[in-house]
Amino acid sequence: MNDISHGLFAALRLIVTFDAELWEISLRSLQVSLTAVIIASAVAMPFGAFLAVQRFKYRRLVISIMNALMGLPPVVVGLIFYILLSRSGPFGVFGLLFTPWAMIIVQIVIITPIIASISHQAMRELWAEYHDLLISLNTSKWRRIKTLIWDGRRNLLTAGLAGFGRAIGEVGAIMIVGGNIEHATRVLTTAIALETGKGDFALALGLGFVLIGLALFVNILIHWLSRTEREGRW
């Protein structure tokens, strides 16, 4: 009990004094996860819109696969990419293992199906509304996708934020391919795991607070966005 209250106090002190290590780790977490979200969204959102607009032979199968990929265990993704990216692996020549890029790659793989699936859901609803008008106006496929993405941008942002929440809190995969190396690949979740193991609860809790803060922030943002969405304020 004393340990915990002591840890809490120390953690708060680290946060208010902008502790260099805490700051560095938090910033890296943000960098890695934001990069992953941006790249994943650039692929997943147009793909979700495409799936909504275009009928093709294996469409149902593709949607099932996409939904199944959402349940991919991150640790297994980490393991697979460890093998692919290691020196002797097929992508070993790029020397990406134990760099932030390796972490970004596994996060992209983990969150792309999530963002695509949520985007697809939103785009499908919007397409049901717009279908008749856009067909009547004789729009091209690409124009339909662009219109859906633009008019559904709030829902898409929600999809992106859901992906971000998943990415920033993920630990298994990035631990494996990142290696939790100090000043290189240490991020919030991996640092918490390490510091807890070492018994340094102050830093672990401080990092935990930052992580919770980010997660809360994202959730509040999603909530607020879905409210403004209904009111159509932007």
Binding site: D132, L133, S136, T147
Partner: peptide, 28 residues
């Protein structure tokens, strides 16, 4: 077909402002 227009039984409203709804067909 470009010279046709159609008003549907339940009006389709784009999730945009009123003036953006009007400009959309011309913008296309």
């Amino acid at each position: 077909h470009a010279n046709h227009a159609y008003v549907f039984q339940s009006p389709v409203v784009l999730r945009r402002t009123v003036s953006e709804n009007l400009s959309y067909p011309l913008y296309l």
